[in-house]
Design a protein around this nucleic acid. Structure first.
Length: 223
DNA sequence: TCCACGATACTG
DNA sequence: AGTATCGTGGAC
């Protein structure tokens, strides 16, 4: 397997041994920087909304306009992706497949439109609320195991679009209690992505049971 | 493993 | 108008 891409812009190259965010200011700095370190640094952070808190266990990086065909911002600014073109630390929430909401954290400088999709988390607070939002789930590890499931468990929908996640709004992102060491992070191809399937921009906490199952993208066949 | 579900965004 | 989509749950 090829572990790099000629399409990867030089400014996305990962710095080695970056420290984990210790406080809110450090997290803000991390999000304002290149998307790949930001994605890894989001692992272990806490996302709180609707009375539920998850510890983020799986993310995917999207490079925005910088040559990433899988990014919603790849073809430029539209009403849907407008918040991606703003400053880092805001929520890009989108609706897909006719029924699901997914949430991204905008990263990098304004105009770059990079973002990190939050794909899965472990419910660490508000368990009863999360169970009530997802009554069909049998195992607690499945409550937020998948990007749309995560939003469902936290009650995130269109109303969260553009939220400043590091402020005191209805959706809050905070550093985790314990940093996630680089050794504990695994990387692989992004899920459900048609183009650029060769770049390992999906990151997860290795061995964590709340990480979603990998599915190769299969174009839907017309009936 | 496969398919229905289903709304929206973007393209032509 | 047509087509693709950063997915999930349930049926095989």
């Amino acid at each position: 397997m090829v572990a790099h891409s000629d399409r990867r812009p030089a400014d996305l190259a990962e710095p080695a041994g970056r420290a984990e965010p210790a406080g809110l200011a450090d997290l803000a700095d991390l999000l304002a920087g290149p998307v790949l370190p930001a994605a890894r640094g989001l692992l272990g952070c806490r996302l709180t909304a609707g009375g539920v808190t998850v510890r983020i266990t799986e993310v995917e990086a999207y490079a925005g306009t910088a040559g990433d065909p899988a990014s919603h911002a790849h073809r430029g600014r539209t009403p849907r992706n407008a918040v991606m073109f703003g400053p880092a630390g805001h929520a890009y929430v989108y609706f897909t497949y006719g029924m699901h909401w997914c949430v991204n954290v905008v990263t990098g400088p304004a105009g770059e439109a990079a973002a990190v999709l939050l794909r899965a988390g472990e419910v660490v607070d508000g368990l009863a609320v999360a169970r009530a939002r997802r009554p069909a789930v049998r195992r607690d590890v499945d409550l937020a195991r998948g990007p749309a499931r995560l939003c469902a468990a936290l009650g995130i929908d269109r109303s969260a679009y553009g939220t400043h996640l590091l402020g005191d709004g209805p959706v809050r992102l905070r550093p985790g209690d314990a940093p996630v060491s680089a050794d504990a992070v695994a990387a692989g191809p992004r899920v459900g992505v048609t183009g650029a399937h060769d770049v390992p921009w999906r990151f997860w906490i290795a061995g964590d049971p709340t990480v979603s199952a990998y599915r190769r993208h299969v174009p839907r066949t017309r009936r």
